[in-house]
Structures are given as structure tokens and as C-alpha cells.
Design a protein around this nucleic acid. Structure first.
Lengths: 203, 203
DNA sequence: GTCTATACTCTGATAGAC
DNA sequence: GTCTATCAGAGTATAGAC
């Protein structure tokens, strides 16, 4: 796409189709494990046509990452300083788990990127993401110091929410294989995590 | 290596050097992201020589995976039915976290594999691994029913240990970027996880 | 056991017709 | 905007000398 004009309807639609197909592929195989042929086939376009919409494979990948962060951090951003601390954190956990269930491909894309040292997302993580976490950690620390939740390391509390919720998307293959087909991972994870954080934070 | 003879000293050594170099590369870039050239360079061998020791890139990768599982599951296997339930689980968490710290490459290799749907490890996960988890879950359930730990879903308790400990290896790039250079992730994670599981399991 | 040279395939990207 | 044809480079693996 050589020009910077506003996108036509067909352009918007094709870009969306390409990104959706690419998300599927990149999440399943990582950046290097995906070929333009596969993305093109999944999107129902020819390879040169794909490259008419995005300059390169890299450009498709970074477009996906760019779209990801806002969605990914929204639940943490939503923590309300004026709300009830325990309820706020439980709501955060619930939203984050729901995000794993509704957007597992995004979760795996993100996991792939960080696992490989965040070569493309590094600056964003060290910048805006770290900034948001610092801000929210301060909020949580305040709640703990006021005795409204049990004392807890706020940074590692946030890490625990990421780890526990994203695990169900990122390690889905393992979770399902271990639990067997009779279990519904997310239906069980909800109550488990609710119990865990209630007991962790109870004053 | 065409023959099935016992390995000479030099063969044993070169196989080890190759596997060590390959672990580094595969953990960092995933199966598809690694070239034989990179592994050969890291191992200090020529590419054809590499292929003298392993039939293919695939063979190197699966050799690594084969070596992985015993190490990975040892702490869970160590759970002692005769021990104190809370102490046993806390010891498990401690060992698993220590494993993340001492073997982050193995953790990331495993994460990469499962993230991509466990194409090669699938049968092992659905078989021996699931069997071990079922066994240990029964043990933990017994402890809970006897009132020796608080009521908790044993499968998801085990998942939580995996998620919380492996997170520090798999998402190390993010953890370090968020905490900044002044923090020591593992030194902080130990007490945090200890507190978390004490509160979760206290009767 | 180890190397140089090379065969062959796949893949990202471009040219140019329509 | 989309396609066919194609190039250049990278990558796995093998042949064969030493």
C-alpha cells in the first residue's frame, strides 16, 4: 500500500481479513514458523496481493502487535482507585480470565513475542506498559498500607494475575490434555482464581 | 550417526555440546526460528559435522524434548504422601521456582512447544504427564478432604504452581523490563509465592 | 570424524500484464 | 487491485575428499 490515503471499504476489509488470518498463524507457529503462502491461503488472497496491503511479513506482524496492547492492558487500566479494593482486584482477575478465553490467539501471540525476548515489543514493555504497572502497583500498595487488603507485593500480585489467567490460553494444549474432555477449563478456573485471590487478600 | 554402538568420549562430548547450543537457540527463537548454521556456529562445529551427530534439525529438537520431562516433573513426583501437606506443597513450589531460575532455557523450550499446540510432546502430555498429575491431584484431594489443607481444586492448584513459577522464566523479558534493574525477580518471587500458598491452603 | 562443495527446496519479495 | 511468472537468497541436507 504505497499511498497514505484513507482506506476504501475493500481495503479496510482485506486488511482485516489478512490480519485475522495472520493472527491465527502467528499465534500457532510464531513469527518464523509462518509463511506468506500460509497467510495468503488462509486469507483467500494471492501472495502478491497480500504484499499489496502490507509491505512485508514483518509489517503484518508488527501491525498485529500494535493492535494488541490496548486490548491487553485495558482490565488493568480499569482498576478504580475509588472502588472497593478487593472487589476491584477480583474484577480485574475476572476480566483478564475472560480475555484469555475470548482472545486466546492474542494471548499466544503476546506470549510468543515475550518468550523470544520481546525483540519488537521491548520498548513498549519497558515504556508505557511498565509505566502503567508502576502506577497500578502504587495504587495497590496504598490499599495494602491502609489495611484494606492483606499486605502483598503489588508488582508480583500483578504478575500472578497475568500468569494465572494467561496460562489457560497459552498452555491450553496441556491444560486440556491433562484435564481430559469432560472438564471445562475456564468454568473451573473462574471459581478457583476467585477463591485464591479472596484468601490472598483477605484482611 | 549411522551406527548404534556405544558412544566414544568425543562423541558423547560433541553430542552434549550440540544439545547445549541447540537448547540456547531453540529456547530463544522456537523450532522454526533456528537454523543449523546458528547451532553449528554456537557449538563450534561445521554444519555437516552437526549432521553427522544428529540426522536432522528435527532430531536435535526431539532429543532435547526427550531429556526435558524427567527434570521438569521431578518436583511434582517428589510430593510425599507421608509428609505434612502444607509443607509438601510449599516445598514443591520452592523446587519448581528454583527450577525456573536454574533452567530458564528448558522452561522456554517447553513453553514454546506447548504454545504451538505440543505437536511433538502431545502424546507424552496426554499420557505419562496426565497420569502423574491425576495421581498427585488425588493425593491433594485427600489432604483437602481430611481437612489438612483448605478446600481447593487440586488440578488447578497444580496448574497455578506451573503458571506462577514458569512465568518468571518464560516471561523474563517482561518481568525484568517492568521491575527495572534494581529488582531481583526470583528473590522477590520466593516470599511472594510462599505467602500466596500459605494463605490459600491455611485451614 | 571432519571438512569443502554443492544439490535442491522453500520463501520473501518484485516485475509487469490485465 | 489482482494475478502469473519469476528472481534472489536462505536453509536443510548430501556427496565425497581427506
Amino acid at each position: 500500500m504505497p499511498h497514505d490515503q484513507p482506506l476504501s471499504r475493500i481495503q479496510t476489509r482485506n486488511r482485516r481479513v489478512i490480519l485475522d488470518a495472520a493472527l491465527e498463524e502467528f499465534a500457532a507457529a510464531g513469527f518464523a514458523g509462518v509463511t506468506l503462502d500460509r497467510i495468503a491461503a488462509a486469507a483467500g488472497l494471492s501472495k502478491p496481493n497480500l504484499l499489496y496491503y502490507f509491505a512485508s511479513k514483518e509489517a503484518i506482524y508488527t501491525a498485529l502487535l500494535d493492535d494488541l496492547l490496548d486490548l491487553w492492558l485495558a482490565p488493568l487500566r480499569d482498576l478504580d482507585p475509588a472502588g472497593d479494593p478487593q472487589a476491584e482486584i477480583l474484577t480485574y482477575v475476572r476480566k483478564k480470565l475472560a480475555l484469555s478465553q475470548s482472545h486466546p490467539r492474542e494471548s499466544r501471540l503476546f506470549a510468543n513475542e515475550v518468550l523470544q525476548g520481546a525483540p519488537r515489543l521491548g520498548p513498549v514493555i519497558a515504556g508505557p506498559l511498565a509505566q502503567l504497572v508502576a502506577d497500578r502497583a502504587a495504587l495497590i500498595r496504598g490499599w495494602a498500607e491502609a489495611g484494606r487488603i492483606a499486605p502483598v507485593d503489588p508488582h508480583h500480585l500483578i504478575f500472578s494475575v497475568w500468569a494465572l489467567t494467561q496460562h489457560y490460553a497459552d498452555f491450553e494444549a496441556q491444560v486440556r490434555a491433562v484435564l481430559g474432555p469432560a472438564h471445562d477449563p475456564y468454568a473451573e478456573a473462574g471459581p478457583f482464581l476467585e477463591t485464591l485471590y479472596r484468601r490472598l487478600l483477605a484482611v
